[in-house]
Nucleic acid binder design. Structure first.
Lengths: 144, 144
DNA sequence: TGTTCCGTAACTATAATGGTTACGAAAGGC
DNA sequence: GCCTTTCGTAACCATTATAGTTACGGAACA
């Protein structure tokens, strides 16, 4: 099981898309997500590094989307907040004196990579705009 | 990040496939995986429930594959040892007085399900026989 | 009857996650 | 220049999952 960061990040971006150009503070976002502003900032840090959002400190500041909701795929969101590999190899290396143990990790690495790529490809078909439309059908996107 | 159970289970099944009808003890398997016999038994419990392996206590006992390696897909292995959802929704429900928070979990649930299905579909294309061939090319499968 | 082996409970150590407090720094209104 | 707002981040705690380990009961079989 992964962390809920991906779910939280998607929730936040959808909220930002709904509110359009208006910047939202961590406090306001935290209320919608039902958590602490610091948790929001932690999650947003990854999104900012990926240039999906920008932040502005000071009065009237907060968070805004960088691009159009139609152009933010969930694959990009996933990679921004869950960098690690989804399927894990064992921390302790297998016994290299066993013919299987000697090579299994390399074999599995390839399979795992393919499987994760398949999942990412599926996530790349969905955008924040799609999520917003699905989640709040009545929303008229406030475009900049 | 998931646990390494899926990797360990695949390792074990590959080892059983290599050894054919000969039953392997938890001790022998643990040596190849480089861990403790109890950890092996814990992992095997899921595989037994899924009818992928059978165990036999007592002298000369151990673990054997139930079916042919060609018929055991990694999707079946994955589902046997990692039953939970891969992508997680937040433990705390969002704020239902927010239009996004009210509905986002249901929307995300659908997306997550599709993404996991895409990964599983990819894993269903690979069998234990494939892994064995890839990992130990020289292996002649000892068939029953 | 004794050895071998699984089945499982119990305990521990470690790491990840999420929640919280705290405080520094940047932005902008006055 | 000051003061308020807000982000950025460190630090700490509680909770949970995983993996490792010991221990012991019960089944199989010679």
């Amino acid at each position: 099981m992964t962390s809920s960061r991906f779910a939280v990040a998607t929730h936040i971006l959808t909220l930002l898309a709904l509110k359009g150009a208006e910047p939202l503070t961590s406090e306001v976002i935290a209320e919608s997500v039902n958590t602490n502003p610091v948790v929001i900032r932690r999650t947003m840090a990854g999104l900012r590094e990926a240039h999906l959002v920008v932040s502005q400190p000071g009065a009237g500041g907060g968070w805004r989307l960088v691009g159009a909701p139609e152009e933010i795929t969930l694959a990009a969101v996933f990679q921004a907040v869950e960098p690690e590999d989804l399927l894990a190899l064992p921390t302790k290396s297998p016994n290299i004196s066993c013919p299987v143990g000697r090579t299994i990790c390399q074999t599995l690495g390839g399979v795992f990579h393919d499987a994760e790529a398949a999942m990412t490809a599926r996530l790349a078909c969905v955008t924040i705009a799609d999520v917003l439309r699905d989640s709040v059908p009545s929303a008229t996107l406030n475009r900049r």
